[in-house]
């Protein structure tokens, strides 16, 4: 109660597969126990290989979506190339730490493939920018505990894109069903070297 991180609710997750990554989130936006919207997108496409998912206080989710998009657009103009996932992670980290003593109440997740060798990259952050690198999965939001449980039991390394989609979807869906503040629909992005697949999942609406 009155914790800014769990006012609006929401959950996000990223996973590494074989030469691919998946990133997903729920679609709920609420005011404490009251559901307000079942179409609140928490994932931004930074460029064709890099995605950012944000959970936490919805106003800060919107602000940071715009801020990071703005910074990466300027980056592309200045450098004449797309930002790399590891560089993006450090950019987000320094942007969050800039507000060390009045933080954005969010827990971001970055997922992408590097430009040169399409190496999968995922990481998470705390609200003041400490990077949590991972070789398997990263979770965030009000269903964090449930997501960890699902990931620990369902995840296996080197899944192909189709199997990774199945794993991440089941992990997310079953986690949010045990969280009153998450759910109300979900989106999953599967990123491989030559295409992005977005799937909107129909879920229970209670």
């Amino acid at each position: 109660m009155s914790d800014p991180f769990s006012l609006n609710g929401g959950a996000a997750i990223a996973m590494i597969g074989k030469d691919c990554i998946a990133i997903a989130s729920d679609l709920r936006l609420g005011q404490q126990s009251l559901g307000v919207s079942n179409n609140f997108d928490k994932i931004v496409e930074i460029n064709s290989k890099n995605f950012l998912a944000l959970t936490g206080l919805a106003t800060d989710v919107l602000t940071l979506k715009e801020l990071i998009k703005f910074k990466t657009n300027l980056y592309k103009l200045r450098e004449e190339r797309d930002i790399e996932p590891s560089t993006l992670a450090n950019l987000i980290s320094s942007s969050l730490y800039e507000k060390r003593f009045g933080p954005w109440f969010i827990s971001p997740i970055v997922g992408g493939l590097s430009k040169k060798d399409n190496k999968p990259f995922i990481c998470g952050f705390d609200s003041i920018g400490c990077i949590d690198y991972s070789n398997d999965f990263i979770v965030s939001g009000t269903a964090t505990d449930q997501l960890y449980g699902m990931c620990e039991s369902l995840y296996e390394p080197n899944l192909n894109p189709e199997d990774l989609f199945e794993t991440i979807s089941q992990a997310l869906l079953n986690a949010v069903d045990r969280d009153a503040l998450s759910g109300w629909g979900a989106v999953v992005y599967i990123i491989t070297k030559d295409k992005i697949v977005k799937r909107v999942l129909k879920t229970r609406q209670d």
Binding site: L34, V36, S37, L62, T63
Partner: peptide, 24 residues
């Protein structure tokens, strides 16, 4: 729908405050 925090969503229908509890 926009609240005092700056939370914005486009909705088919919506309300603020207690009215939301009775009408949604």
């Amino acid at each position: 729908w926009i609240d005092y925090l700056g939370t914005q969503v486009e909705l088919p229908y919506g309300a603020h405050g207690y009215a939301a509890f009775y009408t949604t």
